[in-house]
């Protein structure tokens, strides 16, 4: 009896955790979008007040933002500092490519992030501010959508996991 009960609890718990895991991708997407927005804000500060060169600005940003989002900046800066003559967009693209598996962003978000590669350092200060603000605006919309998706999907997956586990237990009993 005890064996059956503990088995049932184990199944339900696993199923719940499975659902929880699926729903967590929605939460991380929100968090990562927020972090990127914060990074862009930091970038604007770096160039506006410090006139910090791009690689250094990226390192400063990357250090203050959690893994894996911060890695985008650190990896891009590393590539720039290797003196291989890569373009800024090339460095950014390979940093994005390298970190994509660790990120929970959907392809639309990634497109926006990749577009930043064609902006970094390519214009004077006012141009940078304008272009980065535009991407920020698009990212904010993506964030809004991500929050909505999180709210609806978060509960669904958790309940689905729990209910699925329970159904399985009933069948097995």
């Amino acid at each position: 009896m005890y064996l059956k009960l503990s088995g049932a609890v184990l199944i339900i718990l696993t199923a719940y955790l499975f659902g929880f895991n699926l729903s967590s991708a929605y939460r991380s997407r929100v968090r990562q979008l927020e972090e990127i927005l914060m990074a862009l804000e930091m970038y604007l500060t770096e160039i506006n007040y410090g006139l910090t060169p791009l690689p250094q600005a990226f390192i400063n940003i990357g250090k203050r933002i959690k893994v894996p989002t911060g890695c985008l900046f650190i990896d891009a800066a590393r590539l720039m500092l290797q003196n291989k003559g890569l373009s800024a967009s090339g460095c950014w693209e390979s940093a994005v490519g390298k970190n994509t598996p660790a990120l929970d962003l959907i392809s639309d978000d990634l497109e926006l992030v990749k577009r930043l590669g064609y902006i970094w350092g390519k214009s004077d200060k006012s141009g940078q501010i304008r272009q980065v603000s535009f991407i920020q605006e698009l990212l904010r919309q993506a964030l809004k959508e991500a929050r909505k998706a999180q709210q609806t999907n978060d509960k669904i997956w958790k309940y689905l996991g729990l209910l699925g586990g329970m159904t399985l237990v009933i069948f097995l009993l």
């Binding site: 006139l51 060169p53 690689p55 600005a57 004077d124 940078q128």
Partner: peptide, 17 residues
Amino acid sequence: MENTLELISSYSLYAYE
């Protein structure tokens, strides 16, 4: 040309206006 400009300005045109 574009690449060279990026390299001499260390990817930061805004800093060399």
